[in-house]
């Protein structure tokens, strides 16, 4: 069994199993946590709380008017590399075929050369994001190993992917093996690090919004 066979065979199986187990574990452990009962009388109806929660998901996904000058650039950076990542992951033909082999459905992809351009742009944005994190004193203070490792492992997947596509440094087979192995590593890390924000971000915003709406506050 060579590296590629190992990466997309047993290693991928273990990675998917760990990913599913970890995500289910953390979501349920989070969802079933006891929330202290709020003994205050609600300011509004339950319906208002729910709509307040849903509205918060939208409002917090966009820079606040008052702070747009200070946070706009950072949010634009964040949105850009997330869009780039989604485009590369979901619209590159070999990725579509990979996902198709797992889930049984495929869709149209973008030309490989366009994906290469998007990948390089996303990679550049990714470096800019790290630069911002280490140069901004507040962000640096808030960051820990989890942030840097999550950045590193996502970066590793992107770099090995570009190397495999461009045949840089080794044979396609070896590079593809390393790339898939890095994806396996990302899947294993995903549920236990801050990459889990992909699952937490919207429910946590909705919950905060609903709790605040119950108190009559908009967020």
């Amino acid at each position: 069994m060579n590296l590629l066979d190992f990466a997309r065979g047993p290693a991928l199986k273990v990675a998917i199993a760990v990913f599913c187990l970890g995500v289910a574990w953390r979501i349920l452990a989070f969802a079933l946590l006891r929330i202290r009962r709020d003994l205050n009388r609600p300011r509004d109806s339950v319906f208002k709380s729910i709509t307040g929660g849903l509205l918060t998901v939208g409002s917090r996904s966009w820079p606040h008017r008052e702070f747009i000058g200070r946070t706009g650039a950072g949010e634009a950076l964040g949105y850009s590399y997330h869009i780039g990542l989604f485009a590369v992951v979901l619209l590159f033909t070999p990725h579509i075929l990979f996902l198709g082999s797992l889930f049984g459905i495929t869709w149209a992809g973008l030309p490989s050369s366009l994906i290469t351009v998007i990948s390089v742009l996303t990679l550049t944005l990714f470096i800019a994001v790290l630069f911002r994190r280490v140069t901004n004193p507040v962000m640096r203070m808030l960051s820990n190993f989890d942030d840097y490792f999550s950045w590193f492992i996502t970066m590793l997947v992107m770099v090995t992917g570009i190397a495999a596509t461009a045949h840089l440094g080794a044979s396609y087979e070896t590079l593809l093996g390393i790339h898939i192995l890095s994806v396996d590593a990302l899947l294993v890390w995903f549920p236990f690090g801050k990459l889990m924000h992909a699952f937490y971000i919207f429910p946590s915003r909705a919950l905060n919004g609903a709790l605040l709406a119950r108190k009559g506050a908009t967020s």
């Binding site: 997309r8 998917i16 599913c20 187990l21 289910a24 574990w25 075929l97 082999s101 593809l176």
Partner: peptide, 30 residues
């Protein structure tokens, strides 16, 4: 395709194997 997941023995559709594997893992995680 070369980038497909390698699920070992043929005969069982890959999506079904994915479902079985991830289903068991999700149950354990739950």
């Amino acid at each position: 395709a070369q980038s497909s997941a390698e699920w070992g023995k043929a005969g069982v559709p890959s999506p079904r194997r994915t479902l079985e594997l991830s289903g068991a893992a999700v149950a354990a995680g739950a």
